[in-house]
Design a protein around this nucleic acid. Structure first.
Lengths: 344, 344
DNA sequence: CTGAAAGCGCTTACAG
DNA sequence: CTGAAAGCGCTTACAG
């Protein structure tokens, strides 16, 4: 900038005004400065400018999710980006991979870069370490999963209610032996989805059968193995006639397990989370679909709102999921009483 | 930092040394400074530090792709992140959405943030606008698609050869009426994949039939429509007996078109790019799989290498794709001569 | 409308 | 081993 000022024969301040398109600079000076900037390949340095600027904004926000390559989280990423973009704000995204320590490290890395705020799908069991950043007025929003140990803006789906509806859907198709396959137990989403499963069974007066409940499927391959164990181990009368899978990767794994045993037309399946190609599997997969992109948008809106107002009370948004019936969830339980043909 | 220095009763410089873990500070001073930092909730300001630092590194790199929510690009993102992470480097990722102007704007936005380098899957037809940034020594690597109008480090797949192999695979199964469905024509990947299609047909002495070639499918829905037109419009003897789709979204769209006509067991399909659940569709989808994550890793490695050496000649890496046979690509052409049963 | 001085939070290049 | 001064590229808060 100094070089540009020298070449244009004006002061630093005038160059600054032109670069920031402030009004009230004589037209001929504007032209001179712009010419000099072009001649010298001048690029404004945002990091220098916000060092002194009063708002201290870097026009960058952070996003921490389980895995940027998981389609659920990349859809959230996309939603955040959409809201950030219109404000000229960039998004630095990173994957936590269920590593609690990395969550803290990355928060620190984003703080060191002075991003204007951060959106987190927390993986660590406790977020009280965020206390001091929140007190300092650094905007933080939690998405998909609830934070624990700290009061914070939150965007969630109706995990418990939606799961209950999903399981009730299976019950309505005659199922009473419904397996639950869930992910990491310490995640709030898993807790709530399991609670919804219990709710639905309880409401229907169906006993919870512990041997049909499995937690801890960390990826699609583990889910395939676990679903396989459920399908193989149980003796016929106690074998599951339906599966409720609590998450997209688990659903994909369950589909593989069912197909490997040629059970996909006999054992019903409803999965939490939609995924690409769910409509093309045979039978097509019935899912409880969250609008991940909308969650990302909402989280970003909360984040930007928070930048304007430190001391408003925390907000908590719950987005509704909806059941997408595609076939796998409408398979009737095999029983003498039920004689409807397989739907679809 | 000034406050920390005051509270610890030392100079700014000493705090700086402690914060940066430089050796040669007396143990008692280190302890005092660390205590003061904790008391005051001190966070180092990376943006301030690299303003003065000689290397001027922000420990952040940029990544510009078509869409962060497309699984091909989010896998690249993940690969870049893996390499960046071990260096303590953050990744700011953004979507171009085929908007050439946005490509330039985002490059400018990243330049203003002084990221240490940027990886681009270019969408605009010409990258000569990057000339001045490259001259200034700003590391840029291009991934997936070639840059035009500028000499630059590049990571690609063997688009042409791989496409040729994919189409040859269909020819080997008796097909001569093979449709090509491609995306945006100005993308180098599309050019090359079409060229590979032409190569394979030419090598086999099969004439290119213009009515079987369609460019410009911009998303899965358009691909469904285009594939449908191809399947419907042609009169029986000239209808395609196989489809080569040049990209993941197009493949998904083509699967939908085939299924809507119950042709999925009769018309063969090979797609470029693998995708989740391709193994669970019926028939499972044969694809020419690129290792997107490896491409991202390689691009990041080139980028970091470039930061060390401005004037080395540009490198160009071509990663091999491999055919994953799953069923849809092994459907034999229907002809009296061919009596093999459907494979799988 | 334009500019000279001070300062953002840190590091460099020195001196002690 | 420690620190006082200058400066990174810009903006603020003035004065003219």
């Amino acid at each position: 900038m100094r070089d540009v000022a020298a070449r244009a024969g004006v002061s630093l301040k005038t160059v600054s005004r032109v670069v920031n398109r402030e009004s009230g600079v004589r037209q001929d000076l504007v032209a001179k400065v712009e010419q000099a900037a072009v001649d010298l390949d001048y690029r404004p340095n945002l990091t220098a400018s916000n060092l002194r600027r009063s708002d201290q904004r870097t026009s960058t926000v952070g996003l921490l999710v389980e895995d940027v390559a998981n389609e659920f989280f990349s859809a959230i990423h996309r939603g955040v980006e959409e809201v950030a973009r219109v404000r000229g704000v960039a998004v630095v995204a990173a994957s936590l991979d269920r590593d609690a320590q990395r969550e803290r490290e990355l928060v620190g890395a984003l703080a060191a870069r002075r991003v204007d705020g951060v959106i987190i799908a927390p993986t660590s069991p406790d977020q009280s370490y965020l206390e001091s950043e929140l007190r300092s007025g650094w905007p933080i929003v939690v998405v998909d999963r609830e934070a624990r140990g700290v009061d914070i803006d939150t965007v969630l789906t109706d995990n418990r209610e939606a799961s209950s509806r999903a399981v009730a859907h299976l019950i309505a198709h005659g199922h009473t032996r419904i397996a639950f396959i869930g992910g990491q137990e310490h995640l709030t989403t898993e807790h709530l989805r399991y609670a919804g499963y219990v709710d639905a069974l309880t409401n229907a007066g169906i006993e919870i059968k512990p041997w049909l409940v499995r937690h801890g499927a960390a990826d699609a391959d583990q889910a395939t193995r676990i679903a396989g164990e459920l399908l193989d181990a149980a003796s016929a009368p106690s074998a599951p006639s339906a599966i409720f899978s609590a998450q997209n990767l688990i659903t994909m794994g369950s589909v593989r397990a069912l197909r490997a045993r040629s059970l996909q037309q006999r054992v019903a399946l409803v999965g939490f989370d939609d995924f690409a190609m769910a409509d093309l599997v045979d039978p097509a997969v019935t899912v409880m679909a969250q609008d991940a992109r909308a969650m990302g948008r909402k989280a970003a809106e909360l984040l930007f709102a928070r930048m304007e107002s430190f001391d408003e009370p925390c907000e908590r948004h719950v987005l509704a999921s909806h059941l997408v019936q595609r076939g796998s969830g409408e398979i009737q339980a095999e029983s003498p009483a039920s004689e409807k043909p397989l739907s679809r």
